[in-house]
Protein backbone atom coordinates (compact mmCIF):
# COMPACT_ATOMS: atom_id res chain seq x y z
CA UNK A 1 0.00 0.00 0.00
CA UNK A 2 2.70 2.38 1.02
CA UNK A 3 4.79 1.45 -1.96
CA UNK A 4 1.97 1.94 -4.38
CA UNK A 5 1.18 5.32 -2.93
CA UNK A 6 4.78 6.44 -3.20
CA UNK A 7 4.95 5.18 -6.74
CA UNK A 8 1.89 7.21 -7.57
CA UNK A 9 3.43 10.27 -5.96
CA UNK A 10 6.59 9.88 -7.92
CA UNK A 11 4.77 9.25 -11.14
CA UNK A 12 2.74 12.40 -10.68
CA UNK A 13 5.82 14.38 -9.77
CA UNK A 14 7.49 13.13 -12.90
CA UNK A 15 4.53 14.02 -15.07
CA UNK A 16 4.37 17.42 -13.49
CA UNK A 17 7.76 18.02 -14.98
CA UNK A 18 9.49 18.46 -11.67
CA UNK A 19 12.15 16.17 -12.98
CA UNK A 20 13.54 19.11 -14.78
CA UNK A 21 16.11 17.51 -16.94
CA UNK A 22 16.86 14.07 -18.16
CA UNK A 23 20.29 14.19 -19.58
CA UNK A 24 22.36 11.62 -21.42
CA UNK A 25 25.80 11.33 -20.02
CA UNK A 26 29.34 10.81 -21.28
CA UNK A 27 30.99 14.17 -20.72
CA UNK A 28 28.89 15.86 -23.30
CA UNK A 29 28.92 13.07 -25.87
CA UNK A 30 25.36 12.36 -26.78
CA UNK A 31 24.78 8.72 -27.71
CA UNK A 32 23.03 8.37 -31.04
CA UNK A 33 21.21 5.20 -30.07
CA UNK A 34 20.16 3.30 -27.01
CA UNK A 35 21.21 -0.11 -28.24
CA UNK A 36 23.79 -1.94 -26.17
CA UNK A 37 26.23 -2.31 -29.05
CA UNK A 38 26.43 1.42 -29.44
CA UNK A 39 27.16 1.78 -25.78
CA UNK A 40 30.50 0.08 -26.18
CA UNK A 41 31.94 2.67 -28.49
CA UNK A 42 30.28 5.31 -26.41
CA UNK A 43 31.90 4.11 -23.25
CA UNK A 44 35.26 4.31 -24.95
CA UNK A 45 34.68 7.89 -25.92
CA UNK A 46 33.47 8.74 -22.49
CA UNK A 47 36.40 7.26 -20.65
CA UNK A 48 38.85 8.69 -23.14
CA UNK A 49 37.32 12.09 -22.69
CA UNK A 50 37.93 11.82 -18.98
CA UNK A 51 41.54 10.90 -19.58
CA UNK A 52 41.23 7.35 -18.36
CA UNK A 53 43.41 5.06 -20.30
CA UNK A 54 43.97 2.07 -18.02
CA UNK A 55 43.20 -1.28 -19.56
CA UNK A 56 41.11 0.41 -22.13
CA UNK A 57 41.51 -2.33 -24.68
CA UNK A 58 40.34 -5.03 -22.29
CA UNK A 59 37.17 -3.23 -21.59
CA UNK A 60 36.56 -2.58 -25.23
CA UNK A 61 37.01 -6.12 -26.34
CA UNK A 62 34.93 -7.72 -23.66
CA UNK A 63 32.88 -4.90 -22.22
CA UNK A 64 30.45 -6.86 -20.08
CA UNK A 65 32.28 -10.13 -19.94
CA UNK A 66 34.14 -9.41 -16.71
CA UNK A 67 31.02 -8.61 -14.77
CA UNK A 68 28.00 -10.85 -14.68
CA UNK A 69 24.83 -8.97 -15.49
CA UNK A 70 22.53 -11.96 -15.58
CA UNK A 71 19.69 -11.61 -13.10
CA UNK A 72 19.95 -7.84 -13.23
CA UNK A 73 16.71 -6.11 -14.15
CA UNK A 74 16.85 -2.55 -15.38
CA UNK A 75 14.16 -0.01 -16.09
CA UNK A 76 15.22 -0.06 -19.73
CA UNK A 77 17.56 -2.51 -21.42
CA UNK A 78 21.18 -1.47 -21.69
CA UNK A 79 20.65 1.71 -19.74
CA UNK A 80 21.46 2.38 -16.10
CA UNK A 81 18.91 4.97 -14.97
CA UNK A 82 20.30 7.05 -12.12
CA UNK A 83 18.28 9.23 -9.76
CA UNK A 84 20.27 12.26 -8.75
CA UNK A 85 19.50 15.57 -7.10
CA UNK A 86 21.64 17.74 -9.32
CA UNK A 87 22.55 20.80 -7.30
CA UNK A 88 24.95 19.55 -4.65
CA UNK A 89 28.39 20.55 -5.88
CA UNK A 90 30.91 19.10 -6.21
CA UNK A 91 29.05 15.79 -6.15
CA UNK A 92 26.57 16.81 -8.75
CA UNK A 93 25.94 20.11 -10.41
CA UNK A 94 25.12 21.42 -13.82
CA UNK A 95 27.95 22.46 -16.11
CA UNK A 96 28.14 26.04 -17.30
CA UNK A 97 25.66 25.25 -20.04
CA UNK A 98 23.12 24.71 -17.26
CA UNK A 99 21.91 21.35 -18.60
CA UNK A 100 24.79 18.84 -18.51
CA UNK A 101 25.17 17.17 -15.12
CA UNK A 102 28.77 17.01 -13.93
CA UNK A 103 30.46 16.16 -10.66
CA UNK A 104 32.11 13.44 -8.64
CA UNK A 105 29.04 11.22 -8.46
CA UNK A 106 28.42 11.61 -12.16
CA UNK A 107 31.97 10.54 -12.98
CA UNK A 108 31.80 7.55 -10.65
CA UNK A 109 28.45 6.27 -11.84
CA UNK A 110 29.45 6.81 -15.49
CA UNK A 111 32.61 4.77 -14.96
CA UNK A 112 30.63 2.06 -13.17
CA UNK A 113 28.15 1.89 -16.03
CA UNK A 114 31.03 1.70 -18.50
CA UNK A 115 32.37 -1.26 -16.61
CA UNK A 116 28.98 -2.90 -16.85
CA UNK A 117 28.66 -2.07 -20.52
CA UNK A 118 25.65 0.15 -19.89
CA UNK A 119 24.65 3.60 -20.91
CA UNK A 120 23.93 6.12 -18.18
CA UNK A 121 20.76 8.12 -17.95
CA UNK A 122 20.88 10.78 -15.22
CA UNK A 123 17.44 11.68 -13.98
CA UNK A 124 17.43 14.91 -12.02
CA UNK A 125 14.98 14.61 -9.16
CA UNK A 126 14.11 16.40 -5.93
CA UNK A 127 15.85 15.15 -2.81
CA UNK A 128 12.48 14.87 -1.13
CA UNK A 129 11.21 11.45 -2.09
CA UNK A 130 14.33 10.53 -4.06
CA UNK A 131 14.36 7.01 -2.62
CA UNK A 132 10.72 6.44 -3.43
CA UNK A 133 11.69 6.72 -7.08
CA UNK A 134 13.96 3.65 -6.99
CA UNK A 135 12.58 0.96 -9.33
CA UNK A 136 9.91 3.43 -10.36
CA UNK A 137 11.77 6.09 -12.27
CA UNK A 138 15.33 4.84 -12.03
CA UNK A 139 17.40 1.79 -11.03
CA UNK A 140 19.79 3.38 -8.56
CA UNK A 141 20.34 6.58 -6.66
CA UNK A 142 23.83 8.02 -6.82
CA UNK A 143 23.50 11.39 -5.15
CA UNK A 144 25.87 11.67 -2.18
CA UNK A 145 23.77 9.20 -0.20
CA UNK A 146 25.05 8.37 3.25
CA UNK A 147 24.80 4.70 4.16
CA UNK A 148 22.76 4.49 7.37
CA UNK A 149 21.26 1.51 9.19
CA UNK A 150 17.75 2.99 8.74
CA UNK A 151 18.24 3.28 5.01
CA UNK A 152 19.73 -0.20 4.83
CA UNK A 153 16.47 -1.54 6.12
CA UNK A 154 14.63 -0.41 3.03
CA UNK A 155 17.28 -0.57 0.32
CA UNK A 156 20.61 -2.04 -0.76
CA UNK A 157 23.85 -0.10 -0.87
CA UNK A 158 27.01 -0.59 -2.86
CA UNK A 159 30.35 -0.58 -1.09
CA UNK A 160 31.23 2.99 -0.09
CA UNK A 161 32.99 5.05 -2.75
CA UNK A 162 33.88 8.02 -0.58
CA UNK A 163 34.29 8.92 3.08
CA UNK A 164 32.57 11.95 4.40
CA UNK A 165 32.45 13.81 7.71
CA UNK A 166 29.96 16.28 9.10
CA UNK A 167 31.52 19.70 9.18
CA UNK A 168 30.81 23.25 10.28
CA UNK A 169 31.37 26.10 7.81
CA UNK A 170 31.73 29.71 8.95
CA UNK A 171 32.33 32.96 7.13
CA UNK A 172 36.06 33.48 6.56
CA UNK A 173 36.13 36.64 8.68
CA UNK A 174 34.42 34.95 11.62
CA UNK A 175 36.86 34.37 14.48
CA UNK A 176 34.77 31.82 16.39
CA UNK A 177 36.46 28.56 17.22
CA UNK A 178 34.44 25.38 16.94
CA UNK A 179 35.98 22.26 18.42
CA UNK A 180 32.82 20.19 18.63
CA UNK A 181 29.17 20.46 17.67
CA UNK A 182 28.48 21.49 21.26
CA UNK A 183 30.17 24.80 20.48
CA UNK A 184 27.27 25.62 18.18
CA UNK A 185 25.13 26.23 21.27
CA UNK A 186 23.04 29.38 20.90
CA UNK A 187 23.74 29.77 17.20
CA UNK A 188 21.46 29.83 14.19
CA UNK A 189 22.55 27.25 11.66
CA UNK A 190 21.54 26.38 8.13
CA UNK A 191 21.52 22.88 6.71
CA UNK A 192 19.91 20.90 3.95
CA UNK A 193 16.60 19.31 4.83
CA UNK A 194 16.48 15.53 5.37
CA UNK A 195 20.24 15.06 5.12
CA UNK A 196 22.58 13.47 7.64
CA UNK A 197 23.42 16.98 8.82
CA UNK A 198 19.73 17.57 9.48
CA UNK A 199 19.27 14.29 11.32
CA UNK A 200 22.41 14.89 13.41
CA UNK A 201 21.65 18.48 14.33
CA UNK A 202 17.97 17.72 14.99
CA UNK A 203 19.17 15.03 17.37
CA UNK A 204 21.50 17.48 19.13
CA UNK A 205 18.57 19.82 19.49
CA UNK A 206 15.80 17.38 20.41
CA UNK A 207 17.87 15.61 23.04
CA UNK A 208 18.60 18.99 24.58
CA UNK A 209 22.34 18.67 24.09
CA UNK A 210 22.56 22.19 22.69
CA UNK A 211 20.10 24.99 22.03
CA UNK A 212 20.20 25.94 18.36
CA UNK A 213 17.91 27.43 15.75
CA UNK A 214 17.81 25.21 12.69
CA UNK A 215 17.05 26.63 9.27
CA UNK A 216 16.39 23.71 6.95
CA UNK A 217 16.63 24.32 3.20
CA UNK A 218 15.68 22.36 0.13
CA UNK A 219 19.02 23.06 -1.53
CA UNK A 220 22.45 23.20 0.04
CA UNK A 221 23.23 26.23 -2.11
CA UNK A 222 20.58 28.18 -0.17
CA UNK A 223 22.49 27.46 3.04
CA UNK A 224 25.62 29.14 1.73
CA UNK A 225 23.64 32.11 0.42
CA UNK A 226 22.08 32.49 3.86
CA UNK A 227 25.51 32.33 5.48
CA UNK A 228 26.83 34.93 3.06
CA UNK A 229 23.81 37.21 3.57
CA UNK A 230 24.21 36.93 7.34
CA UNK A 231 20.89 35.19 7.93
CA UNK A 232 22.63 32.34 9.76
CA UNK A 233 25.81 31.98 11.81
CA UNK A 234 27.02 28.68 10.42
CA UNK A 235 26.30 25.92 7.94
CA UNK A 236 26.46 22.28 8.95
CA UNK A 237 27.17 20.19 5.88
CA UNK A 238 29.05 17.19 4.49
CA UNK A 239 32.79 17.86 4.56
CA UNK A 240 33.03 16.86 0.90
CA UNK A 241 30.57 19.57 -0.08
CA UNK A 242 32.30 22.03 2.22
CA UNK A 243 35.63 21.19 0.57
CA UNK A 244 34.13 22.00 -2.77
CA UNK A 245 32.86 25.37 -1.57
CA UNK A 246 36.13 26.30 0.11
CA UNK A 247 37.90 25.40 -3.10
CA UNK A 248 35.86 27.78 -5.16
CA UNK A 249 35.32 30.66 -2.72
CA UNK A 250 37.45 32.54 -0.22
CA UNK A 251 34.40 33.65 1.72
CA UNK A 252 34.05 30.47 3.74
CA UNK A 253 36.19 28.38 6.06
CA UNK A 254 35.69 24.93 7.48
CA UNK A 255 35.79 25.52 11.23
CA UNK A 256 35.31 21.94 12.30
CA UNK A 257 35.25 18.44 10.88
CA UNK A 258 33.85 15.60 12.93
CA UNK A 259 36.50 13.06 11.88
CA UNK A 260 35.50 10.71 14.68
CA UNK A 261 32.32 9.79 12.92
CA UNK A 262 32.99 9.02 9.28
CA UNK A 263 30.08 8.62 6.97
CA UNK A 264 30.26 6.62 3.84
CA UNK A 265 28.48 7.33 0.62
CA UNK A 266 27.11 4.49 -1.42
CA UNK A 267 25.01 3.87 -4.48
CA UNK A 268 21.49 2.93 -3.39
CA UNK A 269 19.21 0.47 -5.13
CA UNK A 270 16.11 -1.60 -4.58
CA UNK A 271 16.01 -4.36 -1.99
CA UNK A 272 15.36 -7.03 -4.63
CA UNK A 273 18.24 -5.99 -6.85
CA UNK A 274 21.05 -8.00 -5.20
CA UNK A 275 22.44 -8.94 -8.59
CA UNK A 276 22.86 -5.29 -9.52
CA UNK A 277 24.48 -4.64 -6.13
CA UNK A 278 27.03 -7.37 -6.78
CA UNK A 279 27.77 -6.09 -10.27
CA UNK A 280 28.21 -2.50 -9.11
CA UNK A 281 30.45 -3.59 -6.22
CA UNK A 282 32.64 -5.48 -8.63
CA UNK A 283 32.86 -2.45 -10.91
CA UNK A 284 33.75 -0.20 -7.98
CA UNK A 285 36.43 -2.63 -6.84
CA UNK A 286 37.98 -2.61 -10.31
CA UNK A 287 37.87 1.20 -10.47
CA UNK A 288 39.50 1.41 -7.03
CA UNK A 289 42.23 -0.92 -8.17
CA UNK A 290 42.79 1.10 -11.31
CA UNK A 291 43.21 4.24 -9.23
CA UNK A 292 40.29 5.89 -10.95
CA UNK A 293 38.42 6.68 -7.74
CA UNK A 294 41.37 8.45 -6.10
CA UNK A 295 42.09 10.35 -9.29
CA UNK A 296 38.50 11.52 -9.58
CA UNK A 297 38.48 12.48 -5.91
CA UNK A 298 41.59 14.61 -6.33
CA UNK A 299 40.11 16.21 -9.39
CA UNK A 300 36.85 17.27 -7.70
CA UNK A 301 37.91 17.93 -4.13
CA UNK A 302 41.41 19.21 -4.77
CA UNK A 303 44.02 20.11 -2.23
CA UNK A 304 41.51 21.20 0.37
CA UNK A 305 40.71 17.58 1.10
CA UNK A 306 43.23 15.28 2.66
Amino acid sequence: MKKRFMALMCASIATLGLVACTSETGSGTVPETTETEAAETDSTEATEAEGMETEETDVQEAPASAIDLSGVTLKSDGVLSVGCEVGYPPFEDFADDGTTPIGYDIDIITAVADKLGLEVNIINTAWDGIFAGIDVNYDVVCSAVTITPERQETMLFSTPYINNYQSVVLLADDDKTISSFNDLDGMTIALQKETTSDILMSDYKSTGTIDIQIVANEKVTSCFTQLQNGEVDAVVVDSTVADGYINSSDDFVIAYKDTAEAEQFGIAMGKENAALQAAINQALAELEEEGYIQETYDYWFGAAAE
Partner: peptide, 12 residues
Amino acid sequence: FTVPGVCGFAWR
Protein backbone atom coordinates in the same frame (compact mmCIF):
# COMPACT_ATOMS: atom_id res chain seq x y z
CA PHE B 1 17.89 36.27 -1.24
CA THR B 2 18.53 38.85 -3.94
CA VAL B 3 17.48 42.09 -2.26
CA PRO B 4 19.55 41.62 0.92
CA GLY B 5 22.44 40.25 -1.14
CA VAL B 6 22.49 43.32 -3.36
CA CYS B 7 21.69 45.88 -0.67
CA GLY B 8 23.96 44.31 1.94
CA PHE B 9 21.64 43.60 4.84
CA ALA B 10 20.23 40.49 6.49
CA TRP B 11 16.57 39.97 7.23
CA ARG B 12 17.28 38.69 10.69
